[in-house]
Write a protein that binds this DNA or RNA. Structure first.
Lengths: 350, 350
DNA sequence: GAGGGTTTTGCACACGTGTGCAGTATACAG
DNA sequence: CTGTATACTGCACACGTGTGCAAAACCCTC
């Protein structure tokens, strides 16, 4: 029932020539007479021939295929990045293998092995976890790799990265709050994306220190590391906020927009007015940030560009062009969730 | 520089046997003596051998590869569906090719051709547009296909679908509003997803009719078809609502949650209280629905299951098992955006 | 030690495509 | 008519893997 698709051999038989001639004719090789070339091309058209990319991949050493590792596709941040990647890939006739890691190191290794089996030309990883073993294996397999938002130290020739500047983004967020007059500023982070969390937290600490404010350990809460799906970020934010309230913070800087949304929900439950009683800053500028009430002040990451540049970088590596890891800048987007500290004290508990 | 990965031939040379023996040994064939089998397996391990899936695909007629067509990855609805698909695929050692159509029929055709070139075992499409030519080509190429939320008429043997019941979902939404006491209920739809929009609209019309209410054409607005990216759904909802206000509707049923979010934003701009002055019902139950204010009453689609079942169905087709298109049921989720029609009249304009 | 049975291995081909090299046909010059 | 340059085409191999069939090696029995 599953009759196989027609091959150049079939066309060769029909045209009364050898398969070599057909192969060359379809590639418009000057070795084949114009007349024969056109006849074969038309015949191929009529017979509905589609070249077998698998065979071509086996023959040549390129598969025109790239493996993509994403932590969670439900994360709105990843969605935009993937779109940027896909657009560039499509334009260069490269197909994407999609795999979700759910921030599970074991699964990440499996995915790498699968990609290697499939002989992908390269790998793009936007999976935030990045265990050491995982990157080590990537380097060992000599698969050209571009990491997104992971700031690889360029260990190997084939390991590159494109990042948005987490440290500076955090700085902008905190300085915005300082400029509004806040002095007690909390930080809500995550435990399962250590690299970026560490950098944003460092930006937060340093900026406060530079302003002569000693960071109180009570102001900082990190979500436990068990949950790795994105939806839980909101729950985490919601669960983490109460612990922060007794400390008297008038503003909170969140690891990302979803945490911030959780904070907003928690405030709503408790009748805490935002931003009158508590200012909230997110990170990423995902779509949701514009839709919640109040709309979120946040740090905008150039997600589409992040993806597009990563893909372009990978193509450059494959073509042997010189490439250099890049760090993009983020921009503060001021919306409604931040204001000068109000007179109303935070009402914790009831 | 790009030394090729080692092959079974390399192992054969190292072990002093033929490549056939290696191939059989690695497959634990009983034809090979246990001693040789173990020796070769260990050798393969030591040499870091990874089977070449491309060659295997060429030899066998299966590639263990599935093509995935999604309208837009940024659409939170698609994200969950993809996750369901990916989970089942991963469990069955099947890799996914991801392509985004942006609801562009021309692009959809290109994608189909690419998938065919790559000899994917099957295709899953969650691209809502579905031009006729596109499905026709799929059937012509004899690629086993499962459509999600497109209710294919099972034209060919290989064309199946898994859907959530749009008509019934719309019925539930409207009956909920009727039960609350609403009589004038608007509908905000989209122009670029005709199939599902038509079905939801039909459910809306029929339910109102069954309740003895004649649908006023003024109550219905469909977003123009130019924009196909998801983010614009919110803008469309925002832009469409004003036209609806003068008609005196006390509730509006939206094609999806994003449209509904747009409606909420428009209401906020104009000082219209939701749900006191206007009840809003969405569709899909994406995460955002829980995060906006007021949280959205909506129709929950089993997105994860939709994807998982689609993938499982495709695997069944490939294994020759009998399969049947399925229609899943949706559930009404009541939240804060709906209430009995208030006394306060809608204040349109200023 | 020859014959028969069993176990183990290698040869050769297949999958579909691309390409170096040799071979054939055509044209042209001597 | 022979020799040579030129245009065109086919042979044969390669990519890496899997498999039917035959051949080789081994064991056992008479």
């Amino acid at each position: 029932m599953h009759r196989r698709p027609i091959s150049i051999q079939d066309i060769a038989s029909a045209a009364g020539v050898s398969h070599s001639t057909v192969s060359r004719a379809l590639h418009d090789s000057a070795l084949i007479s114009l007349e024969v070339r056109q006849r074969i091309q038309q015949l191929a058209q009529e017979m509905g021939y589609t070249p077998n990319a698998v065979a071509q991949s086996l023959k040549g050493q390129r598969t025109n295929t790239v493996g993509l590792i994403i932590a969670s596709i439900s994360d709105p941040f990843a969605g935009r990045v993937v779109r940027g990647i896909e657009e560039v890939a499509q334009a260069h006739h490269t197909s994407l293998f999609l795999s979700l890691s759910h921030n599970d190191p074991e699964r990440e290794l499996e995915i790498i092995e699968t990609f290697h089996r499939r002989r992908v030309d390269g790998v793009i990883s936007a999976s935030a976890q990045m265990g050491g073993a995982y990157v080590a294996r990537l380097a060992q397999l000599k698969m050209p790799t571009v990491l997104i938002n992971q700031q690889a130290e360029c260990e190997a020739d084939r390991l590159h990265s494109v990042d948005a500047d987490d440290y500076d983004g955090a700085r902008q967020a905190v300085e915005h709050l300082l400029a509004l007059g806040h002095r007690k500023i909390g930080y809500l982070g995550v435990g399962n994306r250590r690299q970026s969390n560490r950098r944003r937290f460092a930006g937060y600490c340093d900026t406060l220190s530079a302003a002569g404010i000693a960071v109180d350990a009570q102001w900082v809460r990190i979500a436990p590391t068990m949950n790795n799906v994105h939806a839980d970020d909101v729950l985490d934010g919601q669960a983490l906020l109460p612990a922060l309230l007794p400390t008297g913070v008038t503003a909170v800087f969140c690891y990302n927009d979803l945490i911030a949304v959780g904070v907003l929900l928690a405030c709503r439950e408790r009748g805490i007015a935002t931003p009158a009683q508590l200012s909230v800053v997110g990170y990423d500028d995902v779509d949701i940030a514009r839709y919640v009430t109040p709309s979120l002040t946040t740090i905008h990451q150039p997600k589409l560009r992040l993806g597009a540049i990563a893909m372009q970088m990978l193509l450059d590596i494959l073509e042997g062009r010189p490439v250099q890891s890049r760090v993009l800048t983020n921009d503060l987007v001021v919306r409604e969730s931040t204001a000068a500290p109000g007179s109303a004290p935070v009402n914790f508990g009831d």
